[in-house]
Design a protein around this nucleic acid. Sequence first.
RNA 1: CGGGGCGUAGCGCAGCCUGGUAGCGCGCACGGUUCGGGACCGUGAGGUCGGAGGUUCGAAUCCUCUCGCCCCGACCA
Length: 578
Amino acid sequence: MRYTRGFIPTIKEVPKEATNTSHVLLLRGGYVRQVGAGIYELLPLGLRVLHRIEGIVRDEMDRAGAQEVLMPALLPSEYFQETGRWDSFGDTLIRLKDRKGGEYNLGPTHEEIITDMVRRDVKSYRQMPLNLYQIQMKFRDEPRPRAGLLRCREFVMKDAYSFDIDEAGALTSYAQMRDAYHRIFKRLGLAYRIVAADSGAMGGSTSAEFQVLAQSGEDAIAACTKCDYAANIEVATAAFKADVAPDAAAMQASLKIHTPGAGGIEDVVKFIGKGLTPAHMLKSLVYTAGLRHVMVVVRGDHQVHELKLARLLKVDAVHLASDADVKSVTGASVGFAGPVGFKGDVFADHAVANVLNAVTGANESDHHLTNVNYGRDFKAELADLRTVAAGDACPECGAALDLYQGIEGGHIFILGTHYSAKMGATFLDEKGAEKPIIMGCYGIGVSRLIAAAIEQHHDENGITWPLAIAPYHVIVTPLGKEDAIREAAEKVYTSLLAAGVEVILDDRDERPGVKFKDADLLGIPLRITIGQKSLAQGKVELKKRTEKDAVLVDIDACAAAVRTLVTEAGAVLRGGSA
RNA sequence: CGGGGCGUAGCGCAGCCUGGUAGCGCGCACGGUUCGGGACCGUGAGGUCGGAGGUUCGAAUCCUCUCGCCCCGACCA
C-alpha cells in the first residue's frame, strides 16, 4: 500500500484520556479512535492487526477440529431466562426492547445460544465429539471500562464450545483446546503463562487461564521460579507444613499483657519489641458472611484472601465486620480480637498451626496474650485462607514463588452439564439412555490481545510488533525526491509485492525524520531505507525495528531477504497459507 | 455505586479566582527557503467556550441543574 493513499492519522501529542502504554500508542499510531467509554473504532491499521490475530486463531481452531459459526449479537430474552442468567448477570447485561415491547439482550457470551443450536440437531452419541467456535463482538456493560482496548464494553472475542458424551471425552476436548491455545499464543509472539484459575460464575470445574505477562495487567499470578506451577492469585496456594506442628515441650505458659492503644500488628511489634516479628503474631479478623460472623486467623505477616474465605463458607462475598459488630462479638475493640476463648466459629490458615508461642489479641481491649499455641490454647478449622506472597514456597516443588501481573488473554474450562441440563440438551447413548451433553468453553479476548501485544512489545519510540501480527511486514522509506531514489523505491516496492510480503511504501513528500518517526511509532517490524549514498553502490538499508543498526543489502536481493525473515517468523504471506 | 479530576479550534493547553467583544503551541492551507531522526520564515482558515436554565447592562468567567470523558476503589462471564 502507498502511504499517501492510506488512512493513518498519527498524532504527536499524547491524548489526555490515555494512561497506559497500549492505549497511547494505539491512538498515536492511528490504529483506533474512541467513540465512547469502552467503545472503539478500528482504523485500517487496527483492523489489519485484528485480522492477523483472528487468522492465527482460526488456523489453530480449525486444525484442532473445531468449526466456525456466527451467532446473533441480538438475543431474545428467553435464552438467558432459560438458564437464569437474565437475572444473575445483573447490570452487566445490556438489555433492550423492540417496537413491540419484546425484551432482548446483547450477547455478553453465547453458551445459551450455542447450546440451543446444538440441542436442536444433536440427538445421538454418534454426532459427538463436536466443537463449534465463533469470533465476534460481545457486549458487556462493564462497571468501569478502562485502559483502552483492555477492558471494553464491546469487544471481539473468540469462543469455542465443545460437546462430548462423557467426562473422558470432555477432558480430551479440553486437552486439545489447551494444546491449540499454546500454539496460538506462541505464534502470536507473546510471553505468557498458563495458570490455574477460578472457574467463576460460569459454573465450571477444570479451568486454566492464558495470562499475557505485562506490568499493566489487572490480574496477579503466582508462578514458581523452578517448576511449571502457576496460578491466578485467586487460587494460588503456598506450601505449608501440615505435620510439623510445634513441639509441645517448647510451648510456654500463656500470659495476658497490657498493650494500651497497640491494636495493629505493627503497633504490637513496636510495643513489645524484644525481637517479636509479625510472623510470630496471629492476626484475628471478624468477617461477616451473610448473616453470621466468623473469626479468621492468619499469621501476622499474611493477608486474608477474601475470595478463598467466601468459597470456604459457600457465600458470594464476605466483608470485614463493622467496628460495632467486632465489639459485640469479641467483647473488645478492633485490634484486640483473638481466637482464644472466642465463642463462635474460628477458621485459621494452615500456617497458623505452625507458629510457636504466638502473640495475639486477648478479646479484651488494650490486652494481648503471649505464648498462644494452636491445639493447646484454641482450635479452629484449618484451611488455605491467605494470599500468596512473593517468596512463598511452591506447593508443587517447594521452590520460591514469584508474583507477576498478567492480562487474561484466554480462559479454558469444562462446563460439565451446567447448561445442557438446564436447557435439555440431551442425547441417546449406545444403550438408548438419555444423557445430558458434557460441555466445555474456550475463550480468547481477540481485540484485547491487540493491546496486550503492545504492552509487551514497545519501546520509547512506539510499537514493536512481532512479525506475525504486524499490520505490515515491511515499510519502504525513500529519502529524497530525486528520480533515482523514487524509481528505486518503486522497484523495491514492486519486488516486495511480488515476493508476497505485506508492504507499505512511504511515498509521502516528507522529511526523513518524519518518516522515521512514523515508521517507529507504527511499529512496522522491518524497514528498507533508500538513500543517495548506498543507492550509488546499488544497495539499500534493511533494518529491524527492534535493532539499532541497519545492514546494507543489494537492491535486487532485498525482497528475498525480507521474504526469508517473514517466513522464518512464521508470519503469513500475502495470499499464502500457513 | 463511593472518592477525585477534566470538558475552551482537529490535538495538547492558557484564560475563570478578581465578569467587559477568546489566546498560545502543534496540526491544517498557500508562498518561499530547507531535506538522513518529528525544519524555518511569512500569510491564512478554523471556536454557538459540553448542554440547559438563572444572576447581570454584559457570562468562557458567578449560581443551579444536566450530559460526557478520565483516574483510584468496589465490581469484573
